[in-house]
Computed example of a mutant assay.
Amino acid sequence: MTPRPSPLRRPSPLLLDGVAIAMALLDVWAHWDIAEPLRMACALAAAVVLLLRRRQPLLTFLLTLPAVLLSDSVVACLAALYTLASLSRPRTLLLLCVLAFAFCDTTALPSPSFDLTALSRLIPFGYSAATAAAAVFLGQLVRTRRDLSLRLTEISEARDHQQLLTAQAVLAKERAQLAREMHDVVSHQVSLIAVRAGALQVGAKDADTKEAAATIRRLSVQTLDELRHMVGVLRASGGHPTELTPQPALSDIQRLADSSGIETELRTDLPEGLPATVQRAVYRTVQEALTNTRKHAPGAKARIDLVHADGSIRVRVTNTAPTQPPLPLPGAHHGLIGLRQRAELLGGTMTAGPTSDGGYEVCVVLPAEVTG
């Protein structure tokens, strides 16, 4: 999403009200006349009434008009008119308020005299009307700026939402394409492997060949089930939460070793109740190590040691030297990298390398307690 610039911090409304009242009081002080207590009291009341300008802008303007009519203090009324213009939209109302201010400003009480036909009255009236119009224009400008800012915020949010929808649509398309590829290509080929392994199991006379074919067929069927579930997850395209395949635990390691097609020896003293993340990491470590042994060291034996000591879980999988030349099988060489990254995410370490007898060893050390 496009980052938005942080808006400028506006002064608090209480501070702005204080400034408006202070300016109104300064205007009263500039026109103070001790001989006119009623007029001065009216001007002071108009300054205090500004406290209502945000909640009742029209009422505040009407209450400050007498101060303009009775005295020369006009700041309070102009402030009320500005607030009314910044919060109100009807232009007819604002025009009437401008005319009312100009009339009160050019009329003197208690002996009013108002004659627009005389040039001496028309010019002051125009000046007062222009002053009031300036306050109205300023208020309308502030209102327009505020509306424009809100509109820009809405447009920005709509654009971000559209970008999110576009990204989700692209992701859904890629997931659907990947699901089709897995279903049409991978599932088909694994199905053929299962069928051929089943035929080999039925037709073979050698016991070892039958056992190997049965193992291949069982693993193929298990892989097909996982592929079908994964295709269902991909086709969900993020629309609704999809149940994931049950995650492996320590209790599944023995079955993993038995179905690996390798002669293995498992030794474990791990306690129960380890965090699920640790159990998955242990299982994936053993799984990856046995897979690499089967691919790169045919005929080798494997030993799995799962030890709990000093608050750590140590997983060591060691295989002997191969007795047959390895087959040229495809691989992305990401398995050990993934194990290292998984161990580091859990706060552990991972080492791997050849042994002195020509074999290979994978060792992962994880903390027994993992938070988060």
Rank of each mutant, 00 (worst) to 15 (best):
D184K: 06
Q247C: 03
R89N: 03
T117Y: 09
R196V: 01
A158V: 09
Q247H: 02
L81F: 09
A281N: 00
A352W: 12
L178R: 11
L15V: 14
V48M: 15
R255C: 01
Q56I: 12
P248R: 13
A321N: 02
P326V: 10
V74T: 10
L25K: 15
A80C: 08
P112V: 05
L345D: 03
G331N: 08
P3C: 07
I216W: 00
K205Y: 08
T131A: 15
A289H: 08
P66Y: 14
Q247F: 06
S6R: 05
R55S: 08
H333C: 02
H161D: 13
V307Q: 09
P110D: 01
T107S: 03
L306R: 08
F61W: 06
T131K: 15
Q341D: 07
L219I: 06
A276E: 01
E272Y: 10
S111P: 06
D258M: 12
L266S: 00
A20S: 09
L327I: 08
T268G: 13
M23A: 12
Y283G: 07
H183L: 12
Q247D: 03
E211Q: 13
A134N: 15
V75P: 00
A300V: 00
A214I: 02
Q287I: 02
F101L: 10
A179W: 12
A276R: 05
P37Q: 04
L224I: 10
G359R: 06
P367F: 10
D105H: 13
A20Y: 09
L224N: 04
T320R: 07
Y82R: 14
I216A: 03
T349G: 11
G372F: 13
S113R: 05
L250Y: 07
M182Q: 05
M1R: 04
E174M: 02
S187Y: 00
I304K: 08
T268Q: 13
T106F: 04
C77P: 03
R89C: 02
V28S: 06
A130K: 15
G299K: 15
R314M: 13
G338R: 14
H161S: 15
L52V: 04
A289T: 11
T320I: 01
V362F: 15
S86P: 02
L93R: 04
L234Y: 11
S73R: 05
A24N: 01
P325E: 06
L63M: 07
Q162Y: 09
A172K: 02
A300W: 04
L59R: 11
V185N: 11
K205W: 13
G198W: 07
L141K: 09
A169I: 02
Q201E: 03
S312D: 10
K205C: 05
C42F: 12
T351H: 11
